[in-house]
Amino acid sequence: MEFEHFTLKSLLIIMAIIFLQNHLLVVCLDMKCNFPAIFNFGDSNSDTGGLSAAFGQAPPPNGQTFFHSPHGRFSDGRLLIDLIAERLGLPYLSAFLDSIGSNFSHGANFATAGSTIRPQNTTISQSGYSPFDLNVQLAQYSDFLKRSQIIRKGGFFQKLLPEEDYFWRALYTFDIGQNDLTAGYKLNLSTEQVKAYVPDVLGQFSNVIEQVYSRGGRSFWIHNTGPVGCLPYIMDRFLVTAAEIDKYGCSSPYNEVAEYFNLGLKETVVKLRNELPLAAITYVDLYSVKYSLISQAKKLGKFFFFM
């Protein structure tokens, strides 16, 4: 039932943001950070209107709780990226693809629902995956970086674009990878086959971080992926035997793949820290936050689950 699904997504966001706000506060106190802008890359977990701008507005009940009408987000309320922006005292991020009412003076959001790190060899109508994969988002960011400064030198829209130094002072946020895992299962790959291509996915992710760094990015905030085995559509569309369901109602094999991805992502972050000496890279364990909510459902309340 859609309404119940969206309601729990908000609860997930509330719990996660308590963790993130405290973690972000500690990081900022340690670094004495003052981010004038955010540039975000990702999928539906942080899409503030990209896919809606490209393919039509996400319909109700999206947006009904906070915005009181569809507002580009695939959620009934705000997303983590919205609340991170609030915490930093910045406006909500406008989607790069949205030409209506957008203000990019404090950053831009390149995320679109259904995005993957690796390009998918399908159309959105075939698989549901966005054509705006992470490499496309990087290309959009690179174009935005160059053209925004040309326009700022005398264009009519200069006040709607970030100042030049904002690009190296900005916070670069990444929340992507979940769809890369489910894409393999949609192609009827086995769990071992999905695990086998994870290193390539992480290699492409690492390359994007390096590319952003080469263009001046210095502060990176990277979310790991959530417990894929708890997604309703995983439990509904794919074969899961009774023996594979854990005591919280999630599929253990699918969660093991997410944990495998996250372990590799954490190792990738450690490697990037060594290779990019001027970068400050924060790895955020959202998997644990989300799974804690599911595993403590009786303590925290009775919900339906959507992530």
Rank of each mutant, 00 (worst) to 15 (best):
F67P: 06
Y92K: 00
Q120T: 14
S75P: 07
S52L: 00
G56S: 07
I38R: 03
A85R: 02
S69E: 12
S46R: 02
N40R: 00
L80V: 13
G56E: 08
I100R: 05
H71P: 00
Q64D: 14
F67L: 06
P61N: 13
P59E: 09
R78L: 11
S102F: 01
Y92N: 03
F55H: 11
H106Y: 05
S99E: 08
H71Q: 10
E86L: 12
G49M: 04
I117S: 02
A85G: 09
I84L: 14
F55S: 14
A37V: 08
R78K: 15
F110R: 10
G114I: 09
G89R: 04
R118M: 14
A113S: 15
G101W: 05
F41Y: 10
P59A: 14
G50Y: 05
P60R: 13
L97F: 08
H106V: 01
L88W: 00
G89F: 06
L93F: 00
G114S: 13
L51G: 00
S105G: 02
I100D: 00
S99H: 11
T116A: 08
D98Q: 06
P60A: 15
H106C: 15
G101L: 04
R78P: 10
A113M: 07
I84N: 02
R73I: 01
F110D: 02
N109Q: 08
I38S: 02
D43I: 04
L97D: 13
F66V: 15
R87K: 12
S115I: 04
S52D: 03
H68F: 15
R87G: 04
S69R: 15
P36T: 13
G42M: 01
A111H: 04
A113H: 04
S115K: 07
T112P: 03
A111V: 05
S94L: 02
G56Q: 12
S115M: 05
N62M: 09
S46I: 07
H71Y: 12
S69N: 11
P70R: 11
G49V: 03
L80N: 14
L97N: 13
G49K: 10
G42K: 07
G77I: 08
G49T: 03
H68M: 10
S46P: 02
I84V: 15
N40H: 03
H106M: 09
L83K: 08
P91A: 04
I81Y: 03
S94Y: 07
Q64H: 13
A108W: 10
S44H: 06
Q120D: 06
G89S: 07
Q57M: 15
G49D: 03
I81K: 00
L80H: 06
S52M: 05
S75D: 11
L97K: 11
I81P: 03
S102L: 00
S69V: 14
D76E: 13
P60N: 10
A113N: 12
G42L: 03
R78V: 07
A53I: 06
A53R: 01
A108H: 05
Y92F: 11
R87Q: 06
F67I: 06
G89E: 07
P36W: 05
S99L: 08
N45G: 13
I117Y: 00
L79C: 07
F74H: 10
I81S: 08
G114A: 08
L80Y: 11
S102N: 04
P70Y: 05
G63C: 12
P91Y: 02
P119F: 02
A37R: 00
N103K: 01
F96Y: 14
